[in-house]
Simulated scan of single mutants.
Amino acid sequence: MTIRVLVADDQALVRAGFVALLDAQDGIEVVDEASTGTRALASAQQLHPDVVLMDIRMPEMDGLAATRAIVADPALAGVRVVVLTTFELDEYVFEAMRAGASGFLVKHTEPAELVRAVRVVADGDALLSPSVTRRLVAEFAARAKPATGPALSELTSREREVMALVAEGLTNAEIGERLFMSPATARTHVSRILTKLGARDRTQLVVVAYESGLVRPGWQE
């Protein structure tokens, strides 16, 4: 099936570059562009894209507020938001992930990585740029004000193991290899964890893993 993408950025040149790149790919279609957060939200509500590439700094409504609004709308449960940022450790990126974004990309990312990221987040199978995401989450989780997250008491010990590995950015295949189980079994565990915690996707599991103390910042690459 074709992955339908909405590109939201207030810089026309940036939008044009993303649109040209994505429209040239098999199985990806850019359904709309937006230059403001307000327009991005309205377009998402009207068109229900699979993926929204969302710049954070936009007029009228910033990307963070637009992301929150999209995530909070039950009718948009299948829409995945990928935050666009100029710097890897943008101060707003962790808040965007807490708000429900499925990952982030730096604007100067390689074209092939952008295309791969859109496909990955549309599939919901893995985090974007795991090593960079881990550094960012570790940095901002360490500074974050303690939050009351979903209780982990409902998780089995095996599910906690799986969730910790998800927080490392591992794919289902990598989790299966680490825990001596099949990728399908790993996927089943992840699905059950998502259901028990009411999380939208794997990125949200990373946030919960940090905020609950299941995983601590500061691991070595």
Score class of each variant (00 low, 15 high):
Ala126Asp: 06
Phe18Asn: 02
Ser182Arg: 11
Leu53Glu: 05
Leu53Asp: 06
Ser191Val: 12
Asp26His: 13
Arg119Glu: 14
Tyr92Met: 04
Arg178Val: 07
Phe87Asp: 05
Leu214Lys: 09
Met163Leu: 12
Glu154Asn: 13
Gly103Ile: 00
Met163Asn: 10
His189Asp: 12
Phe18Met: 09
Glu221Cys: 05
Thr109His: 05
Ala8Arg: 05
Arg202Asn: 10
Gly17Tyr: 06
Glu60Thr: 02
Thr156Ile: 09
Leu84Met: 06
Ala12Lys: 14
Ser191Phe: 07
Leu197Arg: 01
Val106Met: 10
Val81Glu: 02
Ala141Pro: 11
Pro49Asp: 02
Val31Pro: 12
Arg98Glu: 07
Val79Phe: 08
Gly63Lys: 03
Leu152Met: 07
Ala96Glu: 00
Met97Ile: 09
Asp10Thr: 06
Ile28Arg: 11
Ala34Ser: 06
Ala209Asp: 08
Val121Leu: 10
Met61Ser: 04
Glu29Val: 14
Val118Lys: 13
Ala209Gly: 10
Phe94Val: 01
Leu197Lys: 02
Gly124His: 09
Thr185Lys: 06
Leu21Phe: 05
Glu88Trp: 00
Ala126Glu: 05
Ala141Lys: 14
Glu211Met: 10
Val71Lys: 11
Asp26Ser: 14
Glu60Val: 04
Asp50Ser: 08
Ser129Ile: 04
Tyr92Gln: 03
Ala75Gln: 15
Val30Arg: 07
Ala147Ile: 08
Val5Tyr: 10
Glu139Ile: 00
Ala96Met: 01
Ala101Trp: 04
Ala117Trp: 01
Gly17Cys: 08
Ala122Ser: 15
Asp32Phe: 11
Glu168Gly: 06
Gln220Asp: 14
Val208Trp: 09
Gly218Ile: 12
Lys107Gly: 03
Val19Thr: 15
Val14Trp: 06
Asp123Thr: 14
Tyr92His: 08
Asp125Leu: 13
Ser131Phe: 02
His48Val: 07
Leu127Glu: 09
Ile3Arg: 04
Leu165Ile: 00
Leu205Phe: 03
Val14Gln: 07
Ser102Cys: 10
Val5Asn: 05
Ala173Arg: 15
Gln11Tyr: 11
Val71Pro: 03
Val31Cys: 14
Val7Pro: 03
Ala126His: 07
Thr133His: 08
Glu88Val: 03
Ala126Gly: 08
Thr38Glu: 13
Asp73Cys: 04
Gln45Lys: 09
Phe104Cys: 01
Glu211Val: 04
Glu60Phe: 00
Pro183Cys: 09
Glu174Pro: 02
His108Ile: 12
Asp62Thr: 06
Val118Met: 10
Val132Phe: 04
Thr195Trp: 11
Ala24Leu: 11
Glu161Lys: 13
Leu53Ile: 07
Asp32Met: 05
Phe18Gly: 02
Arg57Cys: 01
Gly149Asp: 10
Ala40Glu: 08
Gly27Pro: 09
Ala144Asn: 09
Met163Val: 07
Glu211Thr: 10
Arg116Thr: 08
Gly100Gln: 02
